[in-house]
Design a protein around this nucleic acid. Structure first.
Lengths: 369, 369
DNA sequence: CTGAAAGCGCTTACAG
DNA sequence: CTGAAAGCGCTTACAG
């Protein structure tokens, strides 16, 4: 059985051509008998290994365990269809941002009698293989990606098992072949920047999100468009790359204030960063909004609690969660439902963190570091 | 077969006495053969009904469907035991407080290869019956209650199905027969109050949580103990009942500041309330900490972002989640593990929201409403 | 340690 | 419309 040619016909039996009118090749799972055949042992022995029973030599056991793993052996499939579960994969599960989405998904899932399995990931772009295995074993109604992305390989695996995937907040442009629910990032950023310009600001800085996130790129782009449309300069040192974290605002906010010619307003790409800018301003003795205007993005609850209350772009997180979850439920009932990209509108919420610049001409005196 | 006596022995076969050394009676599910027997039809016919196949008369179909329902027929049980899931029931899922616990539970669950199913409830004390049904169908490793309580009936149902329950943050005193992980609420509140007294405050108000939550009662009690130990007066109007919400701080904070003799310091029973007190102080033109000291409870991330940064009691939420989840995993392996109550220590985090009162003797002038 | 054989719960093609 | 019989995937008591 170490002769590769010998296993050839056996492997072939693992792929069956079912008597299918659609003339479609479907991957059939391996049975105990097939694994036993490949391993050259009896079905009984494979059964013992599978159930952890004694009476099998270590050598045989190891060989069979390897084969079960390799062949992706799964017990007799219950013909009950998918479990009443939705799997949610969340990037940075403890972010205030993720919470509002999770709460929204839970509410709609509950309405439909579905449980919500939540998994976190620190790595936005690659799925833990154990996560994928767990999802396949659970056979959920569908998978919701919140801020996370899925590489092609696991994406195809899910597709082949008829597990639909919906992405939330990718700006709706990431995978054209994939269902997504996002918000109007570009125009939200444009509105925010426009608001600052209308107040009379001429020197406006930005703290961006990671440049490999569509939402973040779209916000920067909307910002640039508004600045350019107004004919304002945008020195490169006014554009600071961040990671959507509080500390970005603290660090880059400080750096901006220490420039020889600091901006009179800062557009933070999310509220957390905006709160970081607050802290930087505080430690530099700069008053908001008198000496520095700040606009955030998201409209987290905290945005209205801080002082001064934060002017920001409201992202309809609850509604996005709602739409995405309903889409998943719909895909369960109509698997061939056309691929859809939904972008919900964002709105500017003006509070106390923005005002006209101190001097329409020169701006505040440079701050001494 | 409408003669009740005739069904008697057949019903009896639904309860089998397995060849069990423990001499335990175990409820066995009905098989197709048994249902067929009761219905007086062949197994084939029952199988057809079960799978919605044609070739069965409406009458026979109706009879069999009724019996399948009545006998609680379930397909062949996968002999795999409980699913690789933990069920978490969360009170107010979108509270900042719940998030940190959920994130902590997810991390430990993942470590153990377990998925985390999250359900929310707005009603802290009664479980949705659909939730209970879903949990029983999922057969999770265990149930974690986060801020939620379970009435006796569902509690007994879970117990009878060997689904262990662990409660997080009930102060560890709610159900003596139940596993719980809490934190030292009484001594945390005592520390916080003691801190204010040490700074020289003599008039200290409190915004409490709901008086049917142990955590909240314990905090009030710790507060009282510290005030009394210092021989300070505690007028009834200094004790304001809240619900652990931001608006409690806003409303009661305002009410306290409008008293003829307002307190010089406020102990808020959680950080959200403390931020509400901030807002009340702001709208009354009262400066923190110069004119009013504020202490919170929880140490949410936002506590260090606000200005002035909030002095608070740190509750080890991540560690509590960790302990509770590990306890559940342990209960899976040792169902008879002794009931345990773990209370983790809390610590005082001194930031900028507390200072000595303006006038050691009289305090600030009463604020005009 | 190994596997042939009996058996369980279920499905399905087919005879009546 | 109904059911006897063959068969599938798996488990288990037991012979070698």
């Amino acid at each position: 059985m170490t002769d590769p040619a010998a296993t050839e016909p056996l492997l072939a039996t693992l792929w069956r051509m079912p008597a299918d009118k659609d003339d479609q090749v479907v991957a059939a799972r391996a049975t105990l008998a097939e694994v036993a055949d490949i391993a050259d042992v009896s079905i009984s022995t494979v059964s013992k290994v599978l159930n952890g029973r004694p009476g099998v030599s270590d050598e045989t056991r190891a060989k069979i365990e390897g084969l079960l793993q390799q062949q992706g052996y799964a017990r007799r499939q219950s013909s009950t269809g998918p479990a009443a579960l939705i799997d949610v994969l969340v990037w940075e599960i403890d972010s205030t941002w993720a919470v509002e989405l999770i709460a929204g998904v839970e509410r709609v899932a509950r309405e439909h009698g579905l449980g919500m399995v939540v998994s976190g990931t620190q790595d936005r772009k690659s799925a833990d293989p154990r996560w994928l295995d767990a999802v396949l074993a659970r056979r959920p109604v569908g998978v919701l990606l919140v801020g996370a992305e899925l590489p092609d390989a696991p994406r195809r695996v899910l597709q082949s098992r008829q597990v639909p995937v919906v992405t939330i907040d990718q700006g709706g442009h990431a995978h054209p072949s994939e269902h997504s629910v996002g918000s109007a990032d570009w125009s939200g950023a444009f509105q925010a920047t426009r608001h600052l310009i209308d107040l009379g600001h001429r020197r406006i800085g930005i703290v961006t999100g990671p440049d490999d996130m569509i939402a973040s790129v779209a916000r920067l782009s909307g910002f640039r468009a508004a600045v350019e449309a107004a004919g304002l300069p945008l020195p490169p040192e006014y554009v600071r790359r961040g990671e959507f974290h509080h500390r970005d605002g603290l660090e880059h906010g400080g750096a901006l204030l220490e420039l020889p010619e600091p901006p009179t307003a800062v557009f933070a790409s999310n509220d957390l960063q905006a709160l970081g800018v607050y802290e930087a301003a505080r430690s530099h003795g700069v008053r908001i909004p008198e000496q520095l205007s700040v606009v955030g993005y998201d409209d987290l609850k905290a945005a209205s609690w801080v002082s001064p209350a934060l002017t920001t772009i409201r992202v309809p997180l609850a509604e996005m969660a709602d739409q995405a979850t309903r889409l998943l439920v719909r895909l369960r009932d109509e698997p061939d439902f056309a691929v859809s990209h939904i972008d919900l509108a964002t709105t500017l919420v003006v509070r106390q963190s923005t005002a006209a610049p101190a001097e329409a001409a020169g701006g505040p005196d440079p701050v001494t570091p």
